[in-house]
Amino acid sequence: MRVIPAALLLPLILAGCKREARETRLDPPVAEALGGVRVMANGISGQPPMVNAAQGEPYRNNAYQLAQGKRLYEWFNCQGCHADGGGASGPALMNGWWRYGPDAVSIFVTLRDGRPNGMPSFRDRLTTEQMWQLTGYLQNLGATVAATAAPSRNDAMQTRPAENRAPAMGALPVSPDR
């Protein structure tokens, strides 16, 4: 009779599986569908692709995808304008204040199409999957509560606590333009 609770527990455990799954080579139809965002007319917010939810929001809940986003952040020199998230010539990314709103679609569209006053478009430089990885990382960076999945610190000089330590915002003074 002890088998029954154990058997009930098993699907619960298995449900946690996707947190660590790593998709290194997306199926072409899935990659295609990831580009299917429908944006509001003003370019802010909209409907994310259905496939993202169908896959269990991997770009938000999967540490591997977040870490990939973090790498892209460096490789594509996001620091050049945004520094380590604190902001420089570009706005800060971790103070909880988003010019075009905090939802994933806005951030994705910002990356894809660029924004006025200097934000370039990465449409021709990143794949859709990579833009989602970067989007997930940026959301994680600006999170106000600790996430269940997060990348970790880099092997580099540290300018702020690692992402997996705590929500980054609490560790920094609140920005004056907030």
């Binding site: 455990i13 660590e20 540490a63 591997y64 870490a67 092997d155």
Partner: peptide
Amino acid sequence: VAFILQTGPDVGWFAYVPLSGPQYASGKR
């Protein structure tokens, strides 16, 4: 069990850093 949950280590049996370190081995593997 970790392997069944797709959390099996993937950094080689001697887990060299930095591959197994915080920057390159995300997650709990």
